[in-house]
Amino acid sequence: MAATVDPTSTQLEKRATPPVQMFYCGVCTYPPEYCEFGNSLSKCKEWLQAQHPDLYEKYYSDVALKAKLGTISQEAQSRLEEETIKKEAKADAKADAARKKKLASQVIIKRIERNKRKFVTSIRGLEAFGVDLKKAAKLFAQRFATGGSVTKNAAGIDEIVVQGDVSQEIYDMIAEANEDGKGGKKGLDILKGVLIDNIELVEEKRKKDTEQ
């Protein structure tokens, strides 16, 4: 029986060309042979050596390096290397600045009184931590069974507005999503990456004269 099954399967394979199995660098996402043109070569090298020593040998052994030179002149090659180092330093500095900015940015959860006993909660600054605001708004709306939307505030910055006083709950949700050790509860991974220490809970009372 197996003999009759086999030919059909090989025939199928013959007709549809299988895709090339690609392997990409885990640091810069380039194919490893192009890491040298990225801006994290030393990190890429380290990663490849640790994870896939055989490939490291293929791309960075002395023989490979010599073959790689190809038709380019020695001088141009050294210039290229110099540039790579420079680029790397630049990228590092950039990443560092981004990290610092992230550390400095605040998430503000504000409880706004609308009408004596009715509140809305606005959450500002989540986008600095790479949170998808639309998805997060949907998550909050679903979780609390209320309205939740992304709106532009007076300054033109997007913020999430959730109906009802849910500031403490939202704080807890974010905390839960970023707890160490646990992978975060199901569905909360949207909120990952936020620094809990940077969350501020504030309250805004409605002024009497602006009452409608």
């Binding site: 090339v20 194919p31 190809g70 141009a76």
Partner: peptide, 19 residues
Amino acid sequence: LHKYPFILPHVRIDRGAIR
């Protein structure tokens, strides 16, 4: 293209042009 390299005709650039 990486998975199916044959779908387009190829040209090759020299090493100096890659960057």
